[in-house]
Nucleic acid binder design. Structure first.
Length: 662
DNA sequence: ATGGTTAGGCTTTAGACAGCATGTC
DNA sequence: CTAAAGCCTAACCAT
């Protein structure tokens, strides 16, 4: 099947031809056969980089009206925006929290690219363009199973479809265990495929020997570092443990092997620090020395240095000069951008990364090495989900550049079988709805009431009827949980029962509930802010610290790790500033959590007081990127606080002061 | 006394979405 | 239901 046989305009056909796209890949063909070009609902569960974007473009270009492309990451939204904008004759708009092409202008676009939260927010704020859509494409639908963001996605999709029954829905998913359930939910045709444009072989490495799933194997020389080699000579009771090479040495050898062969590599590790350590080690090994990476790498290092004078920045620059980089969420977006583009330009031979890179922007490599398959989480060390490891592995293989991609999981003799079974042969997990989570349900129940979509519990259930959860668990499955959510919201002062008759009442959002929903904060956050503002108004002197304490002590602010060594210091800080804090230290519900909030508040307060990134990063042991994200959230939450203050008629000047100083 | 080594204990641990109204080059 | 690695310090050992 050829592109020019599709119902596309000649200029679009030319556009694709210029990029070498003339023939459809098998999964794309299957999607066309399923009717993506004729308005049919389609779920495509296919591997990363097998041409999902093209399927999205087909749906959006052939739709009879404006289209919406929903994706989970802002960086991804930006990337898709660029590729859609390159299409001839298509007006594209983008709408994400950090980058918004003016609300009303979106109505005029042929295609809008947005994050799911932004679409949800647009619905809550009554944006008109969402009702005029002819087609919605949801990328990475398997995120339906994500703890907090999954419910948003399914409720948003359900709402869009409910308000617009003719809406064509196209959902793109990674390969998961139950794509049929997703297709069933959307009444869509299912396209399932394992096909990839570049073959991928996955192997398990024990020592320097790698066995791939296609029966081939390779071996690499593992240089052990001296310290390990030394203690092997001395130890006697260790037995065969001496024969067990260090996973980091194995990883380094696998990376060096790929690089020596002219390929680029991604190495995934468990923590940020280990990503940095590994990158520094590879740089020291002179990994990319003979690659002639020289000038361009120096330029990238310079760019990294220009971002800030942080320790992280200096480490990154040093690594880049050696043709290596690290990548994790503690990096500022400027640093991430430098690393990503340097890698794409092939000025970097290897990126050592945490999972940020697994699902983010496009950075294909010849070989992917997954050093750690277990990671610390709630409740100790746990296996990383198969889906996630598959996404890391899926980054291997660059079309047109590599004969095939290679993914190598580093194991040892004891774990080899478990790793092989779980990740090489194992199926990815099934996607499960998280909507029943009380916290999520509360926010979406409030949204339904606040937008006047529902005024009774049974109407709320109607709103949720189109949801993945309802399809899986049955319509009545949510009734009890919704009743609890309503009670909670009434108790929180977000929703009121307006009696009309004896047993007859209507649910109405209170002014506070409405503002909370529109500001897109969770009900608990709205509640905490309202209480905080009232308390702040009673304080003899509310300062910017007060404002920060209030917004940091909410579930919408990410918490900041509080080390044992710092705890006493933060405690003292809280005591000496007790007059400016809204919480009585002697009887907090969650003292530890509150102390963490105080730490975050203190950081933000010093930030507006003129402290530099360098100082704060040093003093509070957080990454530069962590500071940025907290500042960003603080801006949002302070504006929510201002809006809430207005609706309850409590003015706290410190809130506005803090906000303008940010 | 000095220097070096080791055992044991303590600390730390992935990621990232959202509002809104103006002003500016 | 589930951990592991780095760093610091104190103790210990050899010279």
């Amino acid at each position: 099947m050829r592109v020019r046989d599709l119902p596309l305009s000649p200029s679009v056909v030319d556009h694709f031809a210029e990029r070498g796209v003339r023939e459809l890949y098998p999964p794309q063909r299957a999607a066309v056969d399923a009717g993506v070009c004729e308005g049919a609902d389609v779920v495509a569960a296919v591997p990363t980089a097998s041409g999902k974007t093209f399927v999205a473009q087909l749906a959006l270009l052939t739709a009879d009206g404006p289209g919406l492309y929903v994706c989970p990451l802002r960086a991804l939204a930006r990337e898709k925006y660029e590729t859609f904008a390159a299409l001839p004759g298509v007006d594209v708009g983008i709408s994400t929290g950090d980058f918004d092409a003016t609300g009303e202008a979106l109505a005029g676009n042929d295609v809008v690219v947005a994050t799911s939260e932004k679409v949800d927010s647009a619905i809550r704020n009554g944006a008109s363009w969402v009702d005029e859509l002819a087609c919605v494409v949801v990328d990475e639908v398997h995120l339906l199973g994500a703890k907090r963001r999954g419910p948003t996605l399914e409720v948003t999709l359900a709402t869009l479809r409910r308000r617009n029954p003719d809406l064509q829905t196209v959902a793109l998913s990674a390969t998961v265990d139950n794509p049929d359930a997703i297709a069933d939910w959307l009444d869509a045709a299912l396209v399932e495929s394992e096909w990839r444009p570049v073959d991928l072989r996955t192997g398990v490495a024990v020592g320097g020997a790698v066995d791939f799933d296609d029966g081939t194997n390779i071996s690499v020389d593992v240089d052990r570092d001296e310290a390990k080699a030394d203690d092997e000579g001395g130890g006697d009771g260790e037995g065969d443990e001496a024969d067990e090479p260090d996973p980091t040495d194995v990883t380094a050898a696998l990376v060096a092997d790929a690089v020596a062969d002219g390929g680029q590599c991604l190495a995934f590790v468990r923590s940020r620090r280990e990503a940095v350590d590994l990158a520094e080690r590879l740089a020291e090994d002179g990994l990319a020395a003979e690659l002639g990476i020289g000038d361009a790498a120096a330029a990238a290092a310079e760019e990294a240095t220009d971002v800030d004078g942080t320790l992280t920045g200096r480490q990154l620059a040093d690594c880049l000069r050696a043709g290596v980089a690290f990548h994790h969420a503690g990096l500022r977006s400027g640093h991430r951008g430098v690393v990503e583009s340097a890698f794409r330009e092939r000025d970097v031979a290897c990126i050592c990364a945490t999972p940020t890179l697994a699902a983010g922007v496009n950075v294909p490599a010849r070989r992917v090495v997954v050093r750690d398959q277990r990671r610390y989480g709630e409740g100790g060390m746990a296996w990383i989900p198969t889906l996630e490891v598959h996404q890391m592995c899926g980054r291997a293989g660059r079309p047109g550049l590599d004969p095939h991609g290679e993914a190598v999981l580093v194991a040892d003799a004891d774990t080899r079988e478990a790793v092989r079974e779980r990740y090489v042969e194992g199926e990815p997990e099934a996607v499960e709805s998280q909507l029943a989570d009380p916290g999520s349900l509360r926010t979406h129940v409030l949204a339904a009431v606040a937008t006047d979509f529902a005024a009774t519990e049974s109407e709320i259930l109607d709103v949720f009827e189109g949801t993945f959860y309802a399809r899986e668990a049955g319509a009545g499955g949510l009734a009890d949980a919704v009743a609890v959510a309503v009670d909670d919201l009434v108790a929180a002062g977000m929703v009121a029962r307006e009696t009309g008759g004896v047993e007859d009442y209507r649910l109405v959002a209170t002014a506070v509930g409405e503002t909370t929903s529109k500001q897109y904060v969770r009900p608990e956050t709205g509640e905490r802010i309202v209480a905080g503002l009232r308390a702040a108004a009673d304080l003899p002197e509310a300062t910017t610290l007060t404002a920060f304490e209030v917004i940091c002590d909410t579930p919408d602010m990410q918490d900041t790790y509080l080390g044992n060594a710092e705890r006493a210091e933060i405690y003292r800080f809280a005591r000496t500033n007790a007059a400016h804090l809204t919480t009585d230290m002697t009887e907090p519900d969650d003292f530890e959590g509150w102390l963490e909030s105080v730490k975050t508040a203190r950081i933000l307060n010093e930030w507006i007081g003129g402290a530099t990134v360098e100082e704060l990063v040093e003093e509070y042991r957080i990454g530069p990127g962590d500071l940025d994200s907290r500042v960003e959230r603080a801006e949002w939450l302070l504006s929510a606080a201002e809006a809430l203050g207005e609706t309850i008629g409590v003015r706290v000047p410190a809130v506005s002061r803090a906000r303008s100083r940010l």
